[in-house]
Design a protein around this nucleic acid. Structure first.
Length: 212
DNA sequence: TGAATGATTTACT
DNA sequence: GTAAATCATTCAA
């Protein structure tokens, strides 16, 4: 019988770096949540960088600082959580220095622990990749919602831990066609070997990028 | 005060 | 392939 891997929160210095560096290095790390209902773990296999205020795709574009985006302007190593399409939560890491509204969206993970709990929440068989292969899906599986808005990822029950490295591929981001030239930037990072990478298709512009 | 819209998912043709 | 679900947030008036 194998012992569970020891997990320790990554330090704030992991988050206090340029957003593209953090997004890239997120791949292979482990998202851990010691929730009231049990321990959940997932290996991060897909993430995107959001580089407001310049980045037209970011909620903090133009320096927009509201009740929703406030966490992005705070210190690195905290959670930025938001609600979209009337039904889905998205989980982000606040990165870079305080006052710089940059974030990394966690788009997909591979379940490592608490799979049965995830399956129950998703109403799917534990073996299905649909458990966590999308940003809204993983939040439902982990029960991540506004309750963890602004949470400190170096001190609380929700954190990132180290994990084995792997090859990392890049592409433009998903679902940000409204962002003009920013939509074409290769700010998405993923593990090309993982079956849990989200099935979302890049836009036409993106496919051209990938074929090049 | 009201209208538009989205860093998506799911079901259906 | 298309469309519906569903509502907090944002911005205009």
């Amino acid at each position: 019988m194998t012992l569970p891997a020891p997990r320790k929160p990554l330090p704030r210095s992991f988050y206090a770096r340029p957003v593209l560096v953090v997004a890239r290095e997120c791949i292979g790390k482990v998202l851990v949540y010691d929730s009231p209902e049990g321990r959940l773990e997932g290996r991060i296999v897909e993430a995107e960088a959001y580089s407001g205020p310049e980045d037209r795709a970011a909620h903090s574009f133009g320096g927009r600082r509201t009740a929703r985006t406030e966490a992005m302007f705070g210190p690195p190593g905290h959670a930025y959580v938001f609600f979209v399409y009337g039904m889905h939560w998205h989980f982000n890491l606040v990165v870079a220095e305080t006052g710089v509204p940059h974030a990394v969206l966690i788009r997909a993970v591979e379940p490592l622990a608490g799979v049965d709990l995830m399956a129950a929440r998703r109403k799917l068989a534990p073996t299905r990749r649909e458990l966590t292969n999308g940003p809204g899906k993983l939040c439902q599986a982990f029960a991540i919602d506004r309750a963890v808005y602004g949470a400190d990822l170096t001190a609380g029950p929700l954190y990132l831990a180290d994990g084995p490295g792997c090859r990392v591929a890049r592409s433009p981001r998903i679902g940000v066609d409204y962002a003009g030239e920013w939509a074409a930037k290769p700010y998405r990072f993923y593990d090309p070997k993982s079956a849990y990478v989200s099935p979302a298709r890049p836009s036409r512009m993106v496919q051209r990028f990938r074929e090049r």
